[in-house]
Simulated assay, not measured.
Amino acid sequence: MLELFISAFITFFVVIDPPGCAPIYASLTTGASASQRRSMAIRAVVIATLILLTFALFGEDLLRALGISLDSFRIAGGIMLFLIALEMVFEKRTQRREDRAQRIIDTPEVEDVSVFPMAMPMIAGPGSIASVMLTMARSEGMSETLIVLAAMGSVLLLMLGSLLLADPLMRVLGQKIEAVITRLLGVLLAALAAQFVIDGLKASFGL
């Protein structure tokens, strides 16, 4: 059970990336009051939690309704997570997030960033939705399902904490340390993504 929690926690932490979202949120909310930043952070995490919970509980039924096998989704999801991992290692993902944040900052009429881009796609993006569904698919029984949900909840609580403490967190970490952490997490995610693809291929071809 502890192994499952650690595996799920690492997967969600790497994909959702609380430390990576903190500087983006800090830049998006420049000029906002402390209460506004706090309310937007809470709202963003709550909305993202509802989105991820919906896919965690009903994602497999949605795939079945679309005629997509779980093994096919494992392979496709693994490939997508591997591409995200490559972007993390080569700093492409951070650059894309910063570009998106700059576009929001350059648009004065956009004030509330809790729904877009924070809740979706930064927290509950395609990668996190795929990882939640893939991890849930590997769990068997109610106890393992609850462990996976607990791991997801723990990461989302860390995300809330990182958004609420975005400014002091950035002063402590700095850009260089954040870049190192991002690259290390990218390597871990690449290994996890490869495992998803291997599991999907084994099940598909009966290996």
Rank of each mutant, 00 (worst) to 15 (best):
R74P: 03
P117M: 05
K176M: 09
I105T: 08
A8Y: 10
Q95Y: 01
L134A: 08
V155E: 10
E91L: 12
T54H: 06
Q175I: 11
A32P: 00
D112T: 09
A179M: 12
G77V: 02
A8N: 13
L163G: 04
P117Y: 02
Q95F: 07
S7L: 13
G200R: 03
I42G: 05
V46L: 14
L66M: 14
A190V: 09
M152S: 06
G31R: 12
A48W: 00
F90A: 09
T54I: 13
T29M: 08
P18C: 10
A194V: 15
L146W: 11
F82Q: 05
G127S: 10
A203D: 11
V148D: 05
G127A: 10
V45P: 00
T182H: 11
P168V: 07
G127Y: 01
L81Q: 04
V110Q: 15
R183V: 10
L2R: 13
A76N: 01
L184T: 12
M152N: 09
L62T: 10
Q36V: 12
S139Q: 04
C21S: 12
I6M: 11
T145A: 06
L146Y: 08
V197A: 13
V197K: 11
A194R: 04
G186M: 03
G67H: 12
T29D: 04
T107R: 09
A85H: 06
I68H: 10
V15W: 02
L63M: 14
R103Q: 11
I129A: 06
R171G: 08
I105F: 03
R38W: 06
A151M: 04
I129S: 06
L146S: 08
S143Q: 12
A76K: 00
R74E: 04
V89C: 08
P126M: 04
L157P: 05
R103Y: 05
Q95N: 06
D71F: 06
